[in-house]
């Protein structure tokens, strides 16, 4: 998400910051030194994926796909999106500095939730498209709802803008669900061993 500085109220910023710090700590605990390359590679890939713009009617939107990252990584989605948001700010000048925690939580909390809701369904599933689509759709929908809540709680005067944020996420939900479903279906066909929290690299081969 790209909520900029100067918009959100201090309690919302603090809450987002706390959630972000907690999530990052939990996420880093799950990542061992050997898994750093995999997690970093997924950060780089998810940063690149957000550069794809998909036409919707006369305009276009970019994908977030926090559902896929969540399904793959669980709590480690926090550090992944942290790196992504830092790179957004450094390379593109998007987002904010003090609202970083809120922006991170908006993307990563739904991703973690989706992981715990759907990962058991997805392992050895005959219908990976379905669960991938559910996960992807739910993740981006929750991100939209949380973003609207963050705006609405900051000030009553933001309510019209919060509604616009919510409405603008609607077309995104269907699209992300379908894209996530296709991606997950392909991945579970090509690399079925992927859908453990973070696959352990094989020992003894190196």
């Amino acid at each position: 998400m790209h909520v900029v500085d100067g918009v959100l109220s201090v309690p919302v910023l603090a809450l987002g910051g706390l959630a972000a710090v907690g999530g990052i700590t939990l996420g880093l605990k799950q990542v061992t030194a050997e898994q750093i390359p995999r997690v970093a590679m997924l950060s780089a890939a998810s940063f690149l994926i957000t550069l794809i713009h998909i036409p919707i009617g006369p305009s276009s939107v970019h994908m977030v796909l926090n559902g896929i990252i969540g399904l793959l990584l669980g709590w480690a989605a926090f550090p992944v999106f942290l790196v992504g948001l830092l790179l957004d700010a450094i390379f593109l000048g998007f987002g904010g500095l003090l609202s970083l925690g809120v922006n991170l939580s908006l993307m990563a909390l739904p991703a973690v939730a989706v992981h715990y809701l759907f990962i058991s369904k997805l392992t050895n599933s005959q219908r990976p498209f379905l669960w991938g689509a559910f996960g992807g759709g739910l993740a981006i929908a929750s991100t939209g709802v949380l973003a609207a809540l963050a705006l609405g709680y900051s000030s009553d005067a933001f309510l019209p803008a919060a509604k616009v944020v919510l409405l603008s996420h609607l077309p995104l939900v269907g699209m992300e669900a379908f894209v996530s479903g296709s991606a997950i279906a392909l991945m579970s066909r090509v690399k079925p061993e992927l859908f453990n929290p973070i696959p352990q690299p094989q020992k003894s081969t190196v």
């Binding site: 995999r38 794809i52 994908m63 896929i68 894209v179 992927l194 690299p201």
Partner: peptide, 21 residues
């Protein structure tokens, strides 16, 4: 379009994990 982008995403993620290994 959406399915193709989904496959593109999936393939990119798989290749990035392979490279990570």
């Amino acid at each position: 379009t959406w399915r193709s982008y989904g496959y593109l995403t999936g393939m990119l993620l798989i290749r990035s994990l392979d490279r990570a290994d």
